[in-house]
């Protein structure tokens, strides 16, 4: 890892200021992706601004039938939250399946969402539940937030402060984890709300998380796994690597989506 200067921010405003002054600064909270990336020298920020200790970015509150989660809240805290478990159990389960227990103690939702790893779990939950990503400048709908591979709508220096998840009548996430890395080879989050059904897929898209319109309309009429058994997903635009080809991933999307619907129907 190259050398850098470290600043522990005292507030979000302080973090924004430090980031603005830095030559090529980066935010850090849990650091569970950033530090390994820096060790591999795929990232070499001049400054790290630590927002992981800011109380104003921590915590979970119930809003309507959903939850608002502070950006520096760890995966373990989300997984263990009774508020999340009672309002959106699928979200608690998803958080409990990220990485491993030690990673979950440190890694944060804000970091995961900001990084938009194409195989990360949280982007699928955000997109399927129609979450809103709140920053120190504005609020961004998940539909507009995830813009490509490791790309988001965040502007230079913009800091995620929380993520708001509306509740769902039924929801479930099913992940086919890479047996070695445990990242999603394909993960499908299905959510049914008063506005209809949303199906979001992570792990498979070359450009990151995406929705499956054909499945959404089929499930809108009949929320059962049988309703999507005939829906095939094209392998165009899906990732192909040593772990799985794009056609295999396309097949897995169908399998995981049906399992998710069955799980959501309990």
């Amino acid at each position: 890892m190259y050398e850098f200067d470290y600043h522990r921010a005292s507030s979000v405003a302080d973090a924004a200021g430090a980031l603005g002054k830095a030559d090529d600064g980066s935010l850090i909270a849990g650091g569970q992706t950033l530090l390994p990336t820096m060790k591999m020298r795929l990232a070499s920020p001049s400054d790290l601004v630590d927002i992981g200790f800011l109380e104003e970015l921590k915590g979970i509150s119930v809003e309507g039938g959903g939850v608002k989660i502070g950006a520096a809240t760890t995966h373990a805290e989300v997984a263990g939250s009774s508020d999340v478990a009672s309002n959106i159990p699928a979200l608690a389960a998803l958080a409990g399946g990220i990485g491993d227990p030690h990673v979950r103690h440190m890694g944060t939702i804000g970091g995961s969402v900001a990084n938009n790893d194409p195989a990360a779990d949280y982007p699928a939950a955000c997109l399927a539940l129609g979450a809103t990503i709140n920053t120190d400048k504005r609020s961004i709908a998940a539909d507009d937030f995830f813009t490509g591979l490791f790309e988001t709508a965040l502007q230079e220096g913009e800091i995620i402060t929380s993520v708001t998840f509306p509740g769902a009548d039924k929801a479930a996430y099913m992940k086919f984890a890479n047996p070695a890395s445990r990242y999603a080879m394909v993960g499908v989050f299905v959510a049914q709300t008063g506005d209809g059904v949303r199906v979001a897929v992570t792990g498979a898209g070359e450009d990151g998380v995406f929705r499956v319109a054909d499945m959404e309309s089929a499930l809108g009429g009949d929320f059962s796994s049988g309703a999507i058994s005939g829906v095939s997903v094209s392998s165009d635009g899906l990732a192909s690597d040593i772990h799985a080809g794009s056609e295999y991933r396309a097949h897995l999307i169908g399998v995981m989506a049906r399992r998710a619907v069955d799980a959501a129907n309990g």
């Binding site: 470290y6 850090i28 650091g31 390994p36 790290l48 630590d50 992981g52 030690h102 990673v103």
Partner: peptide, 10 residues
């Protein structure tokens, strides 16, 4: 926590 993925200054 994994101490290889935590900075001493953190």
């Amino acid at each position: 926590a994994k101490s290889c993925t935590r900075l001493a200054v953190q």
